[in-house]
Design a protein around this nucleic acid. Structure first.
Lengths: 241, 241
DNA sequence: CGCCTTAGAATTGCATACAATAGCATTTGG
DNA sequence: CCAAATGCTATTGTATGCAATTCTAAGGCG
């Protein structure tokens, strides 16, 4: 009921620019826009039915989040993080999620536990299918955890590093290795519920490391911007020209 | 040689928008623009000698960093973080800086140690004076540490939380309590140099906690935008109309 | 034949103009 | 006299236009 990129305090100004931001974000994270692909302001705006102004604003935000690289006077390119950057991201992610579990261990309400278990069940159900659904759910688990801390900043940072990790896995990882994630998520819930902080941190650490260690290659074919972006535009209520 | 707000990969587009961003950032952090003050786009633009477009872009970035609050169709206001938000920020800062010292303990080069000691000496020297210099240096110490990790993302996050902390201290903290910081910084350097990770993490934790615990009230008088912003504009090479 | 120069096209950087929305004051009806 | 409705004003949201920069490529020169 609260998909992808909307935190609770989302005080961002416009509505349309948010839609552009989300459309591009999803397009990048789901791999539709391959790393290093150039995104001209004109084309994107035309595809999404908005002016360059809004596209630029969205670009700025995506660049800050590390999903785009903005080269001065050159334009915007889908980020293509190096292995070293990837390592950095996972390190920070580990530090942040360690704080998340430290906050949550022994403090989860029965309702929150139920929510988490429900989420894992969804993960398990969608595991067989090939779609990006399974990947999305696995990542969302960590977002949900972060939200439960009630710490908005921690929540935002976790979301950001999760995004970057998704991009990294889209580049370096193999798609169908999310099997282990489910059991690891279950272990984590158990440790959190029992209030064993050290165990929870350990499980989280191992879990993230196992995710990080999926560093294999994978490529995708290229298509034209038009057909790539159309579905994302439509799903955000934007009208391509 | 690499002051305030510029990381190594700073791939941000324009140069002028960066100047606007930095001018406003400094103005906020040094307390010239008080929390909750409204910043109309055209007034700011006029004062800084740029159009609303650039001001807006800078606003967006500052809002993401938590220094501004953007209310839809209402405008931008200098952030006025609540005590709860402040707590959240310090918690995240603690998690991040813990990672910093974990990275650095036992791995500092003699040159880096010298740099840190030099910095602390500067802190010590500027301690007597009343200016914001002392505060700035105390904060910068943590930035320098983060930079030494070589982890760009960690570096950026530490910088962000440091900014927010500065704002928080400007609101809740008393100005002249940076005395203890110097000795604590010295302790930290020693622990890092000796490679005692646990000790370093402990010292950092206590240090941050002592900083966080300075939660007293302090207010400032109000002036007009013109005289408030002029010096910041000039120092960034902008030409007020 | 290859490299440097240079004109053209395309794209970004920035400013301005227009449209939409929120806040405020006045007015109007009860 | 007060409350609700309405027009006005100020400010934000968005689009467009112009200037500046970069890329491309054709042409000239060594």
């Amino acid at each position: 009921m609260n998909h992808a990129g909307s935190t609770s305090h989302e005080t961002k100004s416009g509505q349309r620019v948010l839609a552009v931001y989300r459309a591009l974000r999803r397009a990048i994270l789901e791999g539709a826009l391959r790393p290093s692909l150039k995104l001209p302001e004109d084309s994107i705006g035309e595809q999404l039915g908005v002016s360059r102004t809004l596209v630029r604003e969205a670009f700025g935000r995506l660049a800050i989040e590390g999903l785009l690289e903005l080269k001065p006077n050159r334009g915007a390119f889908v980020a293509n993080p190096s292995l070293e950057e990837a390592r950095d991201v996972f390190e920070v992610r580990n530090a942040l999620e360690r704080q998340v579990v430290a906050n949550l261990a022994g403090r989860l309400t029965p309702q929150q536990i139920a929510t988490l278990e429900h989420h894992v069940k969804l993960e398990n159900d969608s595991q067989g299918r090939d779609g990006p659904e399974s990947i999305r759910l696995a990542g969302e688990f960590h977002i949900v955890l972060a939200q439960m801390t009630g710490n908005d900043l921690l929540n935002r940072y976790v979301q950001e590093v999760s995004s970057r990790c998704s991009l990294i896995l889209a580049i370096y990882g193999r798609p169908h290795s999310s099997e282990c994630a489910v059991s690891e998520h279950r272990q984590l819930i158990e440790a959190l519920t029992s209030g064993d902080t050290v165990k929870a941190e350990t499980v989280m650490h191992h879990h993230l490391e196992s995710v990080a260690n999926r560093a294999l290659l994978e490529r995708r074919p290229k298509q034209d911007l038009s057909s790539l972006l159309a579905p994302f535009a439509r799903s955000e209520g934007l009208t391509p020209s």
